[in-house]
Amino acid sequence: MTGLSVIVRRELYGYFATPVAYVFTVIFLVLSGVFTFYLGHFFERGQADLLSFFNFLPWLYLVLIPAVSMRLWSEERRSGTIELLLTLPVSIGTSVLGKFLAAWFFVGVALALTFPLWITVNYLGHPDNGVISATYIGAWLMAGGFLAIGSCLSAATRNQVIAFILTLVVCFLFVVTGFPMVQDLFTPWAPTWVIDGLSALSFLGHFDAIARGVIELRDLLYFLLTIVTWLLATVIVLNLRKAN
């Protein structure tokens, strides 16, 4: 466990020693503002909630999270530090988890910095703060899912651009499977269990469920299982690359 915390700290150092953290945070905050106020019509809606923010969040994550996750392993491989890291006395699993947790924490901080929106909506009206807290937790879990996918794909290539694009595509698929448009494509011919399975796999479905204000065990489990599965896949990819 000591190895884990050392890795987490080293990763966070890496974010804040370079412009990565600042650029990401600023862009994330600016874009979430733009989405909320211009595209989400925060004021015009006249509703005391943060739906105009949370509705766009998955799309924002779709672009920004792969930018964080692409460097997790590709960068280590490109600069050769992977040889240093993997010959230190920590297991591959610990390294994978440590890097993931640092990235997840960092994205969580960026998410928490949207708190002025929360304050604004409380100042203007009487929102259901329980729903908003639940949605924040759901958003953070969803970010974890994106990051875990990105971790695995980043471990598979030394090229960050490839890691970025692959992650974006896979995450996009995980988002849109829950979309009515996509569901409609399958409805005419696919058996119900396929459609149910597809929508059950969707990040959006589970995020929306949490955004209704109830954190159900199955939604929680869904995100945690997604994270665990993709992190295990990362370990497998790294082990395969040791042998190849």
């Binding site: 080293r10 050769g80 530090t81």
Partner: peptide, 30 residues
């Protein structure tokens, strides 16, 4: 790996860290 000190070819190191921070990181992980 606990028994070994290893200098890989090309001496890779986390270039964004200071020398002191890097050596402390290695020390702690060891």
């Amino acid at each position: 790996q606990r028994e070994i000190g290893y200098l890989p070819e090309g001496a890779p190191a986390y270039s964004d860290m200071t020398v002191s921070a890097f050596l402390h990181f290695i020390g702690q992980i060891r």
